[in-house]
């Protein structure tokens, strides 16, 4: 393991062979490192939300949103549509990245545009879902399961919006600098972030549409 080898070095021996270890500075490497940390932080954030969800689910007032015919996500078709939109956003950005890497400007622009379109569509559809739930009488304070649904989708949506701002910044810079060649690296990072948010959404989707028995099993596995 390189970590253990690194930590096992004896720096007082001044090993001259190591003098040229780093050639500062590779901007791409810096951004990649930062993105990894961002994904770790966001991952921890959602992990903690989920842990509290499982813990809170074991109190008697918690009523899961799926499982019984009258519960809103027993039929999760609306959520599947939203999931599809986010998946399309991810795929579109991947195509845009492919275009940027192969220096095909049209494909890059089309991919990014479609990615932005589907991401915004996802956000609008999520808000529509909120309105749908409210029309059924599932308000935020009605039940802890409702509260978690609104909270988790809002926090996830905010992260998508943050991604859109960064993506807009990338596109603006490329436009401003008039240099498509520099697009693929930051676009690659944006795409990776989108895939990550899609994966997070899948976990949230699975959790929020789980029946009470499934949630109880997960909670039991976590020791709650």
């Amino acid at each position: 393991m390189s970590v253990f080898r690194t930590l096992g070095e004896k720096p007082w021996l001044t090993p001259s062979g190591h003098d040229a270890v780093l050639t500062p500075v590779d901007p791409a490497a810096a951004s990649r490192t930062a993105l990894r940390f961002i994904m770790a932080i966001v991952g921890v954030l959602f992990f903690l939300f989920i842990i509290t969800f499982l813990s809170r689910s074991q109190y008697p007032d918690f009523q899961a949103l799926a499982g019984q015919p009258w519960q809103p996500f027993t039929d999760a078709s609306r959520l599947w549509v939203n999931t599809g939109l986010l998946a399309l956003a991810s795929v579109a950005l991947q195509l845009g990245l492919l275009g940027a890497r192969r220096d095909r400007l049209n494909l890059a622009v089309a991919g990014i545009s479609a990615g932005v379109f589907f991401s915004i569509a996802f956000l609008v559809a999520q808000m529509e879902l909120w309105r749908y739930l409210q029309s059924l009488g599932y308000y935020m304070t009605g039940n802890p399961a409702n509260s978690y649904f609104y909270l988790l989708t809002a926090v996830h949506g905010l992260h998508v919006m943050g991604g859109l701002i960064v993506l807009a910044n990338v596109v603006f810079r490329v436009w401003y600098d008039d240099s498509v060649a520099t697009l693929s690296q930051p676009l690659g990072l944006c795409t990776q972030y989108w895939h990550f948010l899609f994966a997070v959404w899948l976990v949230l989707f699975a959790l929020l549409t789980s029946r009470a028995e499934t949630i109880n099993t997960l909670a039991a596995l976590c020791g709650f």
């Binding site: 690194t6 930590l7 070095e9 004896k10 720096p11 190591h18 003098d19 040229a20 270890v21 780093l22 050639t23 500062p24 500075v25 590779d26 490497a29 810096a30 490192t33 930062a34 940390f37 961002i38 932080i41």
Partner: peptide, 24 residues
């Protein structure tokens, strides 16, 4: 803190000068 922290860890991992190994 998160904005600052991202800078600190990334700078330490990626912007060390020549010869500055982690254990130096």
């Amino acid at each position: 803190f998160t904005m600052g922290g991202l800078n600190y860890v990334t700078t330490i991992l990626q912007a060390r000068t020549r010869g500055m190994t982690l254990m130096r």
